[in-house]
């Protein structure tokens, strides 16, 4: 774009990368140190034998913890807090879980097909009690395919911001403002991909991930409604209030 200079793009990349690193919940080094810690068979079985509602509640708590970090990330994105409050909420309601799925590739071990959860690395079988094997397996497949792109922290930061600033979310009041922010982020993402000498098709591959993320999130909503239909009181009284605000 003729209106954005290289220096501005560099600055944008630096700012978003810093916000990402300050709010990413776990540093890569920390995760690497814990990478040998997998759940033992009896621990896996203990997760599998938990009542469905207990496992759902545990996952809701973990998702909520991660969302708090995403909210902090959003607040530190240049321009986000200048949006009207309605739009800040709309973007976080629609995008926070998507960012968690993007961030998940940092906590994912492709070789073992495990993800860092509740203190150790867990395979999909740990989540069996949820009764959502198909969704869990899609989430793991998504993480694996994100991992295969080998994104650096700055690329991941820019992509997360791009996802969060989606200007096509329903109920936005100042769509144009969000569009401007998203375009600026996309330019910064392109800039960082070029600077890191990534292959030409990577931006296209990342764009394809956006629809996969939407599908995962709508399937999460469906599974939650099905769960809520059976256990309305559990959701009402035991789920974190922030989780209910976002997905209720």
């Amino acid at each position: 774009s003729p209106t954005v200079s290289m220096a501005e793009l560099d600055h944008q990349v630096q700012l978003i990368s810093k916000s990402h690193l300050e709010t990413c919940q776990y540093l890569r080094e920390e995760l690497q140190q814990m990478s040998w810690q997998n759940f033992l068979q009896d621990e896996v079985e203990s997760y599998q034998s938990k009542p469905r509602e207990v496992m759902w509640q545990l996952c809701a708590v973990k998702i909520t913890e991660a969302i708090q970090y995403v909210v902090e990330f959003a607040k530190r994105i240049d321009g986000f807090m200048d949006l009207c409050q309605n739009d800040q909420i709309v973007l976080l309601k629609a995008g926070s879980l998507e960012v968690i799925f993007v961030r998940m590739c940092r906590m994912f071990d492709s070789q073992n097909n495990t993800v860092f959860f509740d203190g150790k690395f867990a395979g999909p079988d740990v989540f069996r009690a949820l009764g959502c094997d198909d969704l869990i397996s899609s989430v793991f497949d998504f993480a694996k395919s994100m991992c295969s792109l080998h994104l650096s922290e700055d690329e991941l930061a820019l992509f997360s911001a791009f996802v969060l600033l989606s200007a096509d979310r329903s109920w936005l009041q100042e769509k144009l403002q969000v569009e401007k922010l998203q375009q600026k982020t996309q330019l910064a993402l392109q800039h960082v991909l070029q600077k890191n000498q990534r292959e030409d098709g990577l931006l296209h591959k990342l764009r394809c991930k956006v629809s996969a993320l939407r599908s995962l999130c709508s399937r999460h909503t469906e599974k939650l409604s099905a769960f809520r239909a059976v256990y309305p009181d559990i959701v009402g009284t035991h789920f974190p209030p922030l989780y209910k605000e976002l997905f209720g």
């Binding site: 909210v71 607040k75 800040q88």
Partner: peptide, 16 residues
């Protein structure tokens, strides 16, 4: 606003 009380609160808290 009432519907997203916690989110509002998180957004208003100053970044640490």
């Amino acid at each position: 606003k009432e519907k997203h009380k916690i989110l509002h609160q998180l957004l208003q808290n100053s970044t640490s």
